[in-house]
């Protein structure tokens, strides 16, 4: 599997599943009475929301839970941009890159977020491993259209949509999530 996957302190995620995550997983599977395979994305979301990313043990565990082959889950993790095989920052900053936001200055906003978080803005913009600050606190990456073009430029900071962001305002935003 991904040879670049970050070691998670040598421990496997599948050995640390808390009861409440199991309960949520069981509940999610009931939403798909026709085919358990449909629960693949929901389970990956629950897993990533809890652990921050999905390691090999997670892929195997989810496949086993849904009576699938590991490749059926791995191919989703590698296709869908949202899923990660490595940890992002504790505060995950996703700046919208696409045209209406770019017209409103999203490249400058992304650069300002990087600067404020101490991240190299020239790191690869897309992919499964966004650049993370040295202390692990922040990751900053471009994503494609976040569907809020009327209040561009926008960013998704963890679950919060922030609108009309200015480069000058980025440091204050980071301090609020510190």
């Amino acid at each position: 599997m991904d040879k670049h996957a970050a070691p998670s302190n040598g421990s496997r995620q599948a050995d640390q599943i808390p009861t409440d995550l199991l309960t949520k997983i069981d509940e999610a599977v009931t939403h798909y009475p026709v085919s358990k395979r449909s629960a693949s994305l929901p389970l990956l979301h629950l897993w990533q929301n809890h652990f921050g990313f999905v390691d090999d043990s997670g892929i195997n565990w989810i496949a086993n839970r849904l009576e699938l082959q590991p490749i059926n889950i791995l191919e989703l993790v590698t296709f869908y941009p949202w899923f990660r095989q490595q940890a992002a920052g504790k505060v995950c900053i996703r700046v919208c890159r696409t045209l209406p936001c770019a017209l409103a200055g999203s490249y400058e906003v992304r650069d300002a977020f990087c600067k404020a978080a101490g991240i190299d803005p020239n790191a690869p913009p897309h992919g499964h491993s966004p650049p993370v600050s040295a202390d692990g606190k922040f990751s900053v990456e471009f994503v494609e259209c976040l569907a809020s073009c009327g209040s561009a430029p926008v960013a998704l900071v963890n679950d919060d949509l922030l609108e009309d962001i200015t480069p000058e305002g980025t440091a204050v935003i980071l301090s609020q999530y510190n």
């Binding site: 939403h31 798909y32 085919s35 395979r37 449909s38 629960a39 693949s40 994305l41 929901p42 990956l44 979301h45 849904l66 059926n72 191919e75 989703l76 296709f79 869908y80 941009p81 949202w82 899923f83 994503v143 494609e144 259209c145």
Partner: peptide
């Protein structure tokens, strides 16, 4: 009715792709 969340792929807005995604596959 249930909510099903996507995973960051524009192509899932295409209706047959959305269906594949809902079936737990690459869209």
């Amino acid at each position: 009715i249930y909510v099903h969340q996507g995973a960051g792929a524009y192509i899932c807005g295409e209706e047959t792709s959305l269906i594949e995604s809902l079936e737990g596959k690459r869209p």
